[in-house]
Amino acid sequence: MKILIIEDETELMEVIRQSLEKENFLVETAEDFGSALDKIISFDYDCILLDIMLPGGSGLDILQELKKLNKSDNVIIISAKDSLDDKLTGLDLGADDYLTKPFHIAELNARIKSVLRRKTFGGKNTVDLANIRLDLDDRTLQIDNQPLPLNRKEFDILSYMVVNKNRLVNKTSLAEHVWGDHMDEADDYEFIYSQIKNLRKKLKENRAGIEIQAVYGLGYKLVVV
């Protein structure tokens, strides 16, 4: 899988690159408008991360170009500006998603994988890991082909942890992904623990080949056992 990062902030680009390489993606980068344009015209990418404010031009113009080349459907816009106008323009031009800085690495991972799934599996939006299968469209879980009912939050937690498997998922990131932005003043996010406890119990009782481990003070990690 080949991913292009178009981002003028070198340090941010570097962090994203390192994170994506952990997922075994092939990562290429462009730091300005010109080189970004060169790369999108010359090569094909499975996913493009696009910053809107670039030296030498607007990311939206690059998106325009991608739309002309019919390649705009795998673009995730990453912008420091939480602007509704930019978001609408971007999505109108065919971008798949819009992510506002600062974001969590796990969240970026989840969004990238969502783009890749749609692109690769031709509409079949499922994830297999060990003996479990998640259907992200029907929002169902199967363990050894046996369906296991989960509530909405349990499913959201599990799918987020599965796409970030073997990665440390910050509890803030998990809370924001599952409970939304509303919880942002809630006492260190300890409240998410009860849902995770229930989920762990269900996974264990049904002999799932995965486990959610707590990483003290930071968050959780999903591993295959």
């Binding site: 962090v15 600062p102 974001f103 910050n170 930071l218």
Partner: peptide, 18 residues
């Protein structure tokens, strides 16, 4: 303007913690 440095700091720490 604060968003980008914040993003860099948080993401770097997230990577570091792994």
């Amino acid at each position: 303007e604060l968003q980008t440095p914040l993003a860099i700091s948080i993401n770097k720490l997230e990577l570091l913690s792994e």
